[in-house]
Simulated scan of single mutants.
Amino acid sequence: MKNYLLPLFILFISLGYSQNEKNETGLQQLKAVVANAQTDQPLESVHVVNLNQVVGTITNEQGEFQISAKVNDTLFFSFLGFKSQKVRVTNDMFKFKDTKISLTELAYALEEVIVRPYALTGYLEIDVKNLPLNNAFQYSISGLSVGYEAGSKNPSAVTKVLGAILNPADLLRNLFGKKPNQMRKLRQMKEDDQIRDLLASKFDRETLTELLQMEKVDIEDILNNCNYSKSFITTANDLQILDAISSCYEEFKVLNRKK
């Protein structure tokens, strides 16, 4: 009887220690499969990024991947020719080993868009009156190379205009100050090889905006105020843009310390 009790006692201690360790960190290894939504075939080399933990990985030949995560983390899936997707991590994804994430091909995703053409008559005088007007206005400020669009499409435009009028540095302080957690993640992004490889292959700023939780216009404003050329901003890949923002942020922190 004693021979049975000792192994059981060790087992309970081991389970208790593992449970405490999981509760302290909150991180577990999540395993799942990524497949084509149309064919149900596994997808290889899909980039998977945990936006909260700033770690990345890619799927193998069977579409399988493993990544550190915890409940309520957001996983971002990106693959050439497929619509990118964000998935919130749940308890069930850790409990069940057959979790499958399906990605939709862009060709099928575009078919779901409903296009409503304008009823044009062919007479210019009539058609011009029927076309909807864009109520947005653009403010140009003397000394600045960039205009700022206002109206219903950009509710934060007035704040940006006022910030630029006062001082371009105030605009940077406003943008960086609103996202302190995302700015602190810059170094983590640069250190993760999988994230760097993904950003180096992309030019659409999609993954970058998800990681930094910024709009494209905010990224452009940062780079404009850090004296990067328009050519660089429009042609650089996402990794180069990340490095530029990181460099700009480091300079911004040094200037703030001197004040």
Rank of each mutant, 00 (worst) to 15 (best):
Y228C: 05
N227D: 11
C226P: 11
A200D: 15
I233T: 09
S229C: 03
L208W: 03
Y228L: 08
L211Q: 01
D218V: 00
E210K: 06
F203C: 11
K230G: 14
D204I: 05
N225L: 02
D221T: 10
K230S: 14
C226Y: 13
E215H: 06
K202E: 12
I219D: 05
Y228Q: 12
I233A: 07
Q213D: 14
K202S: 07
I222T: 04
I219S: 03
F203Y: 14
L199Y: 13
L208F: 01
L223I: 09
L199S: 10
F232M: 06
C226F: 14
E220R: 04
E215T: 00
L211V: 01
V217Y: 11
V217D: 13
M214S: 00
C226K: 08
E206L: 07
D204Q: 08
T207N: 11
D204P: 10
M214F: 03
L223N: 06
I219R: 05
L199D: 07
L199R: 08
Y228I: 08
S229I: 07
M214Y: 05
T207C: 04
D221E: 14
N227T: 08
N224A: 15
I233W: 06
E210A: 11
M214D: 04
L211G: 01
K202D: 06
V217H: 12
E210M: 10
T209Y: 06
L208H: 02
F232T: 06
S231C: 07
I219N: 09
I219Q: 12
T207K: 07
E220C: 08
V217P: 05
D218Y: 01
L208M: 02
S229D: 10
E210G: 09
I233G: 00
